[in-house]
Simulated scan of single mutants.
Amino acid sequence: MDVRIFTEPQQGASYADLLAVATATEDLGFDGFFRSDHYLRMGEGDGLPGPTDAWTTLAGLARDTRRIRLGTLVSPVTFRPPGILAIQVAQVDEMSGGRVELGLGAGWFEAEHTAYGIPYPEKRIGRLEEQLEVVTGLWGTPVGERYSHAGQHYTLTDSPALPKPVQASPLDPARAGVPIIVGGHGPKRTPAMAARYAAEFNLAFPELADVEPKLERVRAACRDIGRDPASLVMSVALVSCVGRDDAEVDRRAAAIGRDPIEVRSVGLAGTPSAVVDRIGALAELGVSRVYFQVLDLHDLDQLELIAHEVLPQLG
């Protein structure tokens, strides 16, 4: 089981805060450090010191870390045209020595768009499909050739399709590319996009009972296009609230503004043994990667607890 740390910096974090968590993530043996891509705090609070740009942050972490995987869960297609996104991700991949992954989504938080003057089209799933095609097309174009695309939302003409990522595409090792993460709860288009473009399918904050049927839809979409479903990593992201005893779990739940009973029912929450059991149940459903959503970025003791008491039991 791969175990990654997932953060929500729009709630209020500086680069120094994120670097401290990423450094602990690396030192403690986790597989990766991922962050959301948002520009506005959700819920109450002032969000100080303000938002940090996801790919600017990851560029810094690419130079300030050495081992862990780095990426977004997920970058909205509304924030960046696909040509610019392909350049950004390829550059950060080179800066990291080939450790970057791109989670890409349609975008959903209208308030952050209006707050910063970012257009928010009513229909976005079609843009996501087209961005996946363009980004992978740019990376996969052989050096010396040109890439053109004429679509409903984007037009690229005679692009040199540079720079290239350091990594080879997981779907076609003869071409450049980074692992792409597609996630969501849609019944048809999302599974189809994951089957066609993704190295990983992610379910964010699912009910346990929903995991198996939603993963099966993605496996079916793979079979429909002749892809081996086993070639697609299945992952979940769940809120983290781990404590040595019930009192510590309750304290951590209060610190992130969550009800202790509720967070135990829906998250990776409870004592280490309870969390190991929850991960084991997910593994039986075919999940091979979990993301601990860490909301209190100053509580590095929780990361140490997970590393010392949970990771060794996962094999």
Rank of each mutant, 00 (worst) to 15 (best):
V3M: 08
R4N: 14
I5R: 03
F6S: 13
G12L: 01
A13P: 07
A13K: 01
A16S: 08
A22F: 00
T23W: 01
T23P: 02
A24D: 05
E26Q: 09
L40F: 09
R41Y: 00
M42D: 11
E44D: 14
G45K: 14
D46R: 14
G47E: 06
L48W: 04
P49W: 03
D53H: 12
A54L: 04
T57D: 01
A59L: 08
D64K: 15
R67H: 09
R67K: 13
I68N: 07
R69I: 00
G71I: 04
G71F: 02
T72K: 09
L73D: 05
L85C: 01
A86C: 02
A86T: 06
I87M: 15
V89G: 02
E101A: 15
G105H: 02
G105N: 09
W108Q: 10
E110M: 13
A111P: 13
H113P: 07
G117T: 04
Y120M: 10
K123A: 14
L128W: 01
E129K: 15
Q131T: 09
W139G: 06
T141E: 10
G144S: 06
E145L: 11
S148V: 02
S148D: 06
S148Q: 08
S148N: 11
H149N: 05
A150N: 12
H153M: 07
L156G: 02
P160R: 10
V166F: 08
V166S: 14
V166P: 00
S169G: 02
L171T: 08
P173E: 12
V178G: 09
V178N: 02
G186P: 11
P187D: 11
K188G: 05
R189I: 14
E200P: 01
D210W: 04
E216V: 06
R217H: 03
A221I: 01
C222G: 08
D224R: 15
D224C: 01
I225H: 03
P229A: 07
S231C: 07
S231N: 02
V233C: 11
M234Y: 12
A237T: 10
L238M: 15
S240C: 15
G243Y: 00
D245N: 15
D245L: 11
D246F: 03
A247L: 12
V249T: 15
V249S: 08
R251V: 04
R252S: 07
A253P: 13
I256H: 09
R258F: 12
S265M: 14
V266G: 00
G267F: 01
A269D: 05
S273V: 12
S273A: 15
A274H: 10
V275E: 13
D277F: 08
D277V: 13
R278K: 15
L282W: 11
G286P: 09
L295K: 12
L300S: 11
L303M: 10
E304M: 10
L305D: 07
I306C: 07
A307K: 13
V310S: 07
L311N: 09
P312E: 08
G315E: 14
G315Y: 00
